[in-house]
Amino acid sequence: MVETKESKTGLLERLRNSIPQEWILSLKAPEPRRIFLSVKREHFKEAMTKMLKDEEITHLSTITGVDLGEEIEVIYHLDKSGTILSVKTTTPKSQPTLPTVTDLIPGAPLYEREVHELLGVAFDGHPDLSRLVLPEGWPPGLYPLRREISIENIRSALEKAKEEKKVG
């Protein structure tokens, strides 16, 4: 009735073989059609390029940014014939930067801008990291999805920005 899907191990095995061990931090498939691959930051772009090319992946579902405390984790949710391959990498929170993937995936710019705006991750080589979702006049340097920023913080920062605007 329904055509059989590529089993989760097929992709998992291929990834295990094609990507050098020393690039990988962890590789697991907790459930069918879900693979989590964690790669080291310095090899992230290489691994991404290789994977996209080897597996002919074109679809990037979205990019998620998670504040882990000391580091910011950025997750790229790729789709390979129904399997979501979540490629994770981390970047230090003090100076969060990552290479852009917009040159590999033309559909990525908006997602990178979103992550940049909400978590302050700078994407090297992104053509235009301007404001996307936050309102104009948002206080610069206030990244609302970071862990230490509470809703109260945002509220007071916005009040302040409003005051300054009135004075100015």
């Binding site: 579902s61 998620t64 504040d67 949710h77 908006l110």
Partner: peptide, 28 residues
């Protein structure tokens, strides 16, 4: 395609809840 990412830390509240609605994917 509507995709959600949920990260739980074992409490009764999620640590991170990410939503990507289909329209954002179609804007480019």
């Amino acid at each position: 395609e509507d995709i959600h990412y949920i990260k739980s830390n074992g409490t009764d509240k999620p640590e991170r809840f990410k939503v990507r609605a289909p329209t954002l994917g179609n804007i480019p």
